[in-house]
Each structure stands twice: as C-alpha cells, then as structure tokens.
Amino acid sequence: MQTDIDPRNLIGRKAFDRKGTKLGTVDEVYLDDATGIPEWAAIRMGLFGRDAFVPLEPSELIEGTLRVPFDRSLIKDAPDFGVGRHLSPEQELQLYHHYGLDIAPPPPLNHNSTNTTTQEDP
C-alpha cells in the first residue's frame, strides 16, 4: 500500500473485496510497532457485524476506497481479536497465515564470535 497515506485518512473509508463486493467501512488502522507504517485495517462488516482485520499490504487505496485483494468470505472468516487493542506478534502471525501471506522471518542475530585461539602447524 502507499506508505505516504496518513492512516487517519483511512478511517471511515469504504472497503471492497477483490470482486468489488462492499465489505464495510474502515473502523481502525493498526501501525507496525517497529516502523510506524500502517499494517492492518479493521473493517466494520455490516451494521451489527464484527470488525475483520485485513492487511494493508497488498491492499490499495483507489479513488477514495480501500480495495482488498481477497474474497469477502476469507475476510469474514479472519481471526477475531477485537478492536481497540494492540495486536500481538502472535496474532499478526495468525492473520498473515490466514491470508496466505508470506512474511520474512526476522534476520538472525549476528553473533560475531571470533576464535581467539590459533593453531600452529607442528
């Protein structure tokens, strides 16, 4: 998704699935803890429906609406963690798996262990 978009501008926008079916309205936007980049949107699905989390990458903001490249049924079945709370890394991982999105594991810690002993040839 375009990273120059203010996440506050997403609140209240209509959201549509990949087929153009209306999903609902963006209720909340969740930022990545490390980067501050908008990562997830909670979409209010129906008047009495629950909020469903959708990934903002690879979603697009087109002509003032959020286009989510997944089917409504998949979005509707996304894990429900409730809105207004912080998403834990484990919850985010569940959402990534639900949507079939591959995420790169964090890079391994670089332990520059050097061998301080030297062996001499006899």
Rank of each mutant, 00 (worst) to 15 (best):
K19R: 09
A41L: 02
H111T: 15
V29G: 03
N110T: 09
H86C: 15
G84M: 11
A15G: 01
P122M: 12
G82Y: 13
V26R: 13
D102R: 13
G24R: 03
L74P: 02
I62M: 01
Y99Q: 06
F70S: 00
E63F: 00
F81Q: 04
E90P: 01
D32Q: 05
V68W: 00
R8V: 06
L109W: 04
F70T: 04
A41I: 06
E63P: 00
D32F: 07
G64T: 15
L31H: 08
T114Y: 11
N110F: 14
F48A: 10
H98F: 06
L66T: 01
N110W: 11
V26Y: 14
P55L: 11
D27P: 00
T35A: 03
E120P: 09
M1D: 03
P89C: 14
F70V: 02
S88E: 15
P58F: 07
D121K: 13
P89V: 06
E39C: 04
V29C: 05
P79W: 04
K14R: 06
R50T: 12
F81C: 03
I11K: 07
H86A: 15
N115E: 11
I5K: 04
Y99G: 08
N112I: 09
V26T: 13
T3C: 06
P105T: 10
I62W: 00
G64S: 12
G64R: 14
P7Y: 15
G64H: 07
A52P: 05
I37K: 09
S73F: 05
Q91P: 10
R50W: 14
D102W: 13
V26G: 14
P38H: 08
A34V: 14
H97G: 02
D33W: 11
P106E: 07
I11G: 01
E92M: 03
K22M: 12
L101P: 01
M45E: 12
G82R: 12
R44N: 07
G82P: 09
A15W: 08
D102M: 15
L87C: 03
A42L: 09
V83D: 00
D51K: 11
L31Q: 11
S88N: 08
I75Y: 01
R67M: 04
A41N: 00
D80N: 00
R18C: 08
D71R: 04
P7H: 13
L31V: 15
V26P: 12
P7S: 10
